[in-house]
Amino acid sequence: MSSTNNPAPKWLFPLVLSFIIIILAAVIPRFLPPYTIISLNDIFMYIVLTVSWAVFSGPTRYISLASAAFFGIGIYVSAVLGNVLPFLAAIALGGLASFLLALLVGLSSLRLRGMYFTIFTFGLSELIRHSVLWWEVNITRTVGRLVVSVDNITVYYAMLTIVLLTLAMAYFIKNSKYGLALLAIGESEEATDHIGVNVNALKILAFAMSAVFMGAAGATMATRWTYIDPSIAFNPLFSFMPVLMAIFGGVHRIYGQIIGATALTLLADMLLTKFPYYYNLLYGIILVAVILFLPQGLAGLRERMSKWRKHVLVK
């Protein structure tokens, strides 16, 4: 459980990361077919959602199911303002809208603990989805909108940038005293408060920070789908998938979250092409299997393996 078992060398993570970035940024878009770039964009999207989700929910153990709301509001900002604003401005506004929404959610729900927080965040995302739908049906009288489309390579670079910013944010928060304080909140809020941490402010701020890049990613990805409606933008899957991906890879490790998001996105991709009819069913089975057999995720598996190895060596 603890984030302190087996600490990897401090320089390893940034080094590996910058290596991957160089490859992704410079090499790949020139040589790969459009299809691969599209699926890379999907992977980027889920990395942003998963790592962002884990910034707050990982250490504090407050399971948020509001990711769909934060992602979706980014999508809608881009859909509504995409044809009047430049691409970059739409992305920034998407992130801002998401941040403000999260601030509001955090302020209203900070007293809720455990299950109540989870149900509240889920209910809120659904309320937003249904309200937007109702608005479109009854007020604007058209469901869904067209989004100004942007070419794949531009989306690719935008998403790559958002992924990097997300990772940087997650890394700095995790390794700062605030990251340690968030971890302490997950252990005992009362004790954390009593050693001088402004628990409520920290919780709300971390929650809002974690929403920024979800919104930005939503605003970016919207341009790729060309048509969106409330069921697409606020799909509850966007709330559940990051949680599963984080669990699958390991909630307490950023590299675990990246691996989890990448692996499950690729898996979904593969299932969709190979078994289009059984795709959802197989996916459901895999979700249940992950929760059942990998409760600590792949990172946990690695730790268990190394513990086991030590155990054998000692003998």
């Binding site: 399971i63 299950m115 989870t118 459901g284 089975i285 979700l287 249940v288 929760i291 409760p295």
Partner: peptide, 18 residues
């Protein structure tokens, strides 16, 4: 409580798609 809500979400997928 946290993991069981996720597991039941997976269950929803399975039953619905069957």
């Amino acid at each position: 409580e946290g993991t069981s809500i996720l597991a039941s979400f997976g269950l929803l997928f399975i039953i619905q798609n069957i």
